[in-house]
């Protein structure tokens, strides 16, 4: 088990405030989002200005987190508001639907319900 050596931002990746050799970023500089990259069993912290695709960011005074969108969303604004859907789903008012509501038709290219 590798010793858990923590260092301040100088020896860390860009955007980190504190990091460890084994786990990458442990905390981020202000206003950046911390995201845990998975590599098999290992998790490595990285600090980003926005969360990766499939995740949304939640800002708070002391920490900014990335949280997974719903499974049918490619990207989202919050847990219950998608901004882009996965193939086979169509966006309508923040929801990824498999069929569009009355008056709208699915656009496969845009993955949206359109007029």
């Amino acid at each position: 088990h590798r010793p858990h050596k923590q260092s301040m931002s100088s020896g860390c990746q860009s955007g980190c405030l504190t990091c460890s050799e084994y786990n990458g970023c442990l905390s981020c500089k202000p206003r950046l989002f911390i995201f845990l990259e998975r590599n098999g069993m290992k998790q490595t912290g990285v600090c980003l200005p926005s969360c990766p695709s499939g995740y949304y960011g939640t800002r708070s005074p002391d920490r900014n987190d990335c949280t997974k969108c719903r499974p049918e969303c490619d990207s989202c604004f919050t847990s219950n508001f998608c901004t882009r859907c996965r193939p086979g789903f169509y966006l309508h008012q923040g929801k990824c639907l498999q069929t569009c509501p009355e008056g709208r038709v699915p656009s496969t290219a845009q993955r949206e319900c359109v007029l």
């Binding site: 800002r59 708070s60 508001f81 008012q93 923040g94």
Partner: peptide, 8 residues
């Protein structure tokens, strides 16, 4: 406009 944040 469908989603707006003015938080923080």
């Amino acid at each position: 406009l469908q989603a707006l944040t003015l938080a923080l």
